[in-house]
């Protein structure tokens, strides 16, 4: 869908490239998360996709077409953009803010109005309460949701989201992330998502791109990056609780001892998890119930047993005995 080929950018009056020969591919319907420390070029990469920044080397294509052949305002209207600073228009109501791109695309008024209502509801806000308010009357979390709604308004196939949940407290942030994942189930956009929070990246990403000083350090699925970190930089980015994060992404069925080879009655202490539940859930249950084994089920049918030694061995193997 979106393809970067050897893309570079050096800003004027800067010796070091902000983005250095990046090659990557974002698949249709995927959430691709760009993660790395402040100043590593995440925002610059996003802004190159909608031509707010012009690369000085390499090419970017969308569906095989170079973006340099497209008219910038027209291109931008087909790409939803959630900017890092939210940037709602303070002189317009919330409804008018969300209607911005439909207005630029000259949608008929009733179609726009219907869409605005739909989006305010989709964001979990009350249209009759919020629609006529001005941005300064919203909380930080509400403003960020409106920013997302505005980007979604014209139903663009591609979304660029630059730290959309950065300005809210950790609890609201977790809720927005959950809502975001649920929303993506229904809208199925191709999303380029920027964050410097590795937990957010692992939770939301189908595919992660780890960046450092404008260079691409490692790409892969969250579990690939967690289990095979490229170097010390990625290792330190993942944090000391890498083992626990892995257990959060590993399904119980992966580490269980299956029943298929076993006949006879199943001995159970009554504690059970679903086969697709993360091992972390099973681990928490073991600690709470003070037991070493948990029954793993598919629906109501028991399919295996998960034991504490199996989990320990797994974590030790993957994190080289550091956990």
């Amino acid at each position: 869908m979106i393809h970067f080929d050897q893309v570079s950018k050096t800003f004027a009056a800067s010796q070091r490239p902000a983005v250095d020969r990046i090659t990557l591919h974002v698949k249709q319907g995927n959430i691709c998360v760009f993660v790395g420390p402040s100043g590593c070029g995440k925002t610059t990469i996003l802004r190159m996709i909608n031509r707010l920044v012009t690369p000085d080397g390499g090419t970017i294509t969308i569906d095989g077409r170079s973006i340099m052949q497209m008219d910038p305002p027209a291109l931008r209207r087909t790409i939803g953009y959630v900017i890092q600073q939210v940037g709602l228009l303070p002189h317009r109501t919330i409804a008018q803010n969300i209607a911005l791109v439909p207005e630029l695309l000259k949608w008929p008024r009733d179609k726009t109005e219907k869409r605005v209502l739909e989006l305010i509801e989709m964001m979990g806000l009350d249209p009759s309460e919020v629609g006529h308010k001005y941005p300064h009357q919203l909380s930080g979390g509400q403003a960020q949701r409106v920013g997302v709604a505005r980007a979604l308004a014209a139903d663009p196939p591609i979304m660029l989201m630059d730290e959309p949940f950065a300005a809210v407290d950790p609890i609201v942030r977790l809720r927005l992330q959950d809502e975001f994942l649920r929303l993506q189930q229904t809208v199925q956009k191709t999303i380029c998502f920027v964050t410097h929070d590795i937990n957010e990246a692992i939770k939301l990403g189908d595919y992660l791109v780890v960046l450092k000083e404008g260079r691409l350090v490692q790409t892969g699925t969250p579990i690939e990056i967690l289990t095979q970190p490229e170097d010390d930089f990625v290792l330190s980015l993942l944090g000391d609780d890498r083992g626990v994060k892995i257990l959060d992404l590993t399904r119980a069925e992966t580490l269980m001892e299956p029943f298929e080879n076993r006949l006879g009655p199943i001995k159970s202490n009554g504690h059970r998890v679903q086969s697709i539940d993360p091992v972390k859930i099973a681990l928490e249950m073991m600690m709470q119930k003070n037991t070493d084994e948990i029954l793993v089920c598919k629906g109501t049918r028991p399919v295996g047993i998960l034991r504490w030694p199996a989990i320990k061995t797994h974590v030790n193997r993957i994190s080289g005995g550091t956990v």
Binding site: R77, Y81, I83
Partner: peptide, 10 residues
């Protein structure tokens, strides 16, 4: 930031 957002919207 507001101008930036407007530009990004097209």
């Amino acid at each position: 930031a507001v101008v930036n957002a407007g530009k990004g919207m097209g």
